[in-house]
Design a protein around this nucleic acid. Structure first.
Lengths: 163, 163
DNA sequence: TATTGTTATACTCTATAACTATA
DNA sequence: TATAGTTATAGAGTATAACAATA
């Protein structure tokens, strides 16, 4: 006669469920996984902080590159950000419709557009950046510590050279 | 009479184009931007290295979590990975069709699925991980140095707690 | 009433091919 | 021939709402 089972849901195979903490297993020391999770957390915080400005990370990056390199050709802006030129068109269209950036004829090459911020775009970017530093980067540094942030930036730069 | 211009494409406004290096401007010390670029580089390398296994990062992560927590409920696996449960269904469907993972009835709750790897899935994951460590993580450590990698993992973990 | 798995749907992001106008 | 901007399109990834079965 078999031994009585106390509950119908108990089994003879060990299963890890209910309220045990979930183990990361092989993911634990996989850099790509940790990097992805950290990036999602930071982007999520960015989105919340920039909600009033209605600005996504990619849009911010375009404005920042144009501001730092006024007159740069459209193809070079998209290339610098790693955005393929076909996808860059709609992104720039929106910034232009919002009167934050503008396409101008590129001197010496009638195929190209030279990109500039509008005066409104300059003010907008300045305000957004100030807000970002105060709300977002400050929170990042609270979690990390300021020295750690600088070191992290250095490590990430090395990694980006990988591909 | 106006002074002669040497070339039609020269202008009187200073524009940053042609072969000057592109400045990152405000992006230079924005952690989110650097994090995103680094993550894309690492994922791109992952994809190349895992091409023969036809395995994307998300698929690898699911197999790894199931392997480390056999019998875990479907909802807890997706939750642990930050994948919303609706989107997790197709992801798991594909792993099940490839006979790498399987849904089993969860003891004690007929709404839930308990997830397991198949024997084939166990071998597949082991092979994939070995390949990944040899090809991918090794390259990462070449770029970073082994001590830096451990430190980076620690910093990223802190950041993930942000959101 | 709440939860689990599921479907349907929509929106963003990304990648490729092809067109046009210029070079 | 090659390049810059553009359009069209298709594939991932992600988010929400709603339903059936079960708790």
């Amino acid at each position: 006669m078999p031994a009585p089972r106390r509950k119908a849901e108990t089994t003879d195979t060990a299963t890890a469920d209910d309220r045990q903490p979930v183990s990361l297993g092989l993911l634990d020391n996989l850099l790509g996984y940790r990097l992805r999770r950290a990036q999602l957390s930071v982007f999520q915080d960015f989105l919340i902080v920039m909600k009033d400005f209605d600005l996504r990370p990619a849009q911010f990056s375009v404005l920042a590159i144009i501001a730092a390199n006024p007159g740069l050709k459209q193809s070079r802006v998209s290339e610098a950000l790693g955005i393929n030129r076909a996808n860059f068109v709609a992104l720039l269209d929106e910034l232009e419709q919002r009167k934050l950036a503008r396409r101008a004829p590129a001197p010496g090459d009638r195929r190209s557009n030279a990109l500039f911020l509008t005066p409104k775009g300059e003010g907008f970017l300045k305000d957004a950046y100030r807000h970002l530093v105060v709300q977002h980067e400050k929170r990042v540094e609270t979690v990390l510590g300021s020295a750690d942030k600088q070191q992290l930036l250095g490590l990430l730069e090395k990694l980006t050279a990988l591909a």
